[in-house]
Write a protein that binds this DNA or RNA. Structure first.
Lengths: 177, 177
DNA sequence: TATTGTTATACTCTATAACTATA
DNA sequence: TATAGTTATAGAGTATAACAATA
């Protein structure tokens, strides 16, 4: 986890410095750049973001910056098709070399022959297993939906609140309109 | 990266549900629980947090919740010694089994014999290499200090701003009361 | 009824810069 | 001068719930 944290931090630095984008934004753009044609919001979100509104927020930023375009889908009138613009592709092109370089420098280069392949192999299996898993353990919900759900055995820390705003999470009130 | 993201998400869910703490907070508590005696803020921060003020913030929350204690160091009057309280240890104890379980479920169990050791071995080397590295590439500063520094070749996206508030990072104003 | 996407809102967290105090 | 830590502040990002519209 520490290695990944350092890697992620390095990657974020580079993306911010050379493209002024976050890692999440880069992932979204890169995904769009790789997929010829368009993706729906849901397809785009998959694996990058854990809430729908989170994606809408990011897509809003990317669209405002002229890096993507959103148009209603002709096939399914509920869906939105997202396309990467020329400017978006240009940004990816501009940022990608440095990105590759950072990852190479931090992860690839220091590993002896064969280890990178082994690592990729292992983590691919882990990922596939996780994607198959029903999120389980403290997260019995589907995939994107929220994170909270009191898990029956729930006990608050007997000592004091950790939340800055001192407000309980549970007190969401949820009063129907 | 996707596997790690899923793992991290799962871990965060569990920690939030069973202990109402974040992953960062858990790391800090766990580090304190493992270190007999006290750590200075700087020692505590190492590898967990990338800014000093970030740690002060988290330490403030943990202290307010009665999970840690901060006292001035007798040896070095600049330093603060952080100690985990009984309540803090209790929280770690309460949360740890579930934590182990989640990690086992998501990472350990799905891997065939030997792969876990290989993975640990590889990532340990990667980490050691990263810690040795001067942060380099788009991050020529020391270790904890900030991340921003315009990198000479800096070019803003030619199309539009990505920042929500449309305000530049540089315009921090900083007017002292 | 389920799904797709958006909006409003609240809140957590992080980083920057300025500051204090000690080594 | 350098280091340890705090504070003020601003902003990015995320999640929840409610909502609208279509399948």
């Amino acid at each position: 986890m520490e290695a990944v944290s350092l890697l992620q931090h390095g990657v974020e630095q580079q993306l911010r410095a050379e493209g002024d984008i976050s890692y999440v934004q880069f992932q979204l753009l890169a995904r769009l750049a790789n997929s010829h044609g368009q993706l729906t919001m849901t397809q785009l979100a998959d694996g990058v973001v854990y809430s729908r509104s989170g994606l809408t927020y990011q897509a809003g930023l990317l669209e405002k910056a002229g890096l993507i375009t959103r148009v209603p889908s002709p096939d399914d009138d509920r869906a939105t098709l997202v396309t990467i613009t020329v400017a978006g592709l240009a940004l990816v092109d501009r940022v990608l070399p440095g990105h590759v370089q950072v990852v190479h420098h931090l992860l690839v280069a220091p590993l002896p022959e064969g280890d990178l392949h082994r690592l990729g192999d292992i983590m691919t299996r882990v990922r596939d297993h996780m994607r198959a898993q029903p999120p389980r353990s403290a997260a019995p919900r589907k995939r994107h939906p929220g994170r909270r759900q009191e898990s029956a055995t729930e006990k608050e820390p007997e000592d004091g609140q950790l939340n800055p705003g001192r407000s309980f999470r549970r007190a969401s009130r949820s009063r129907r309109h």
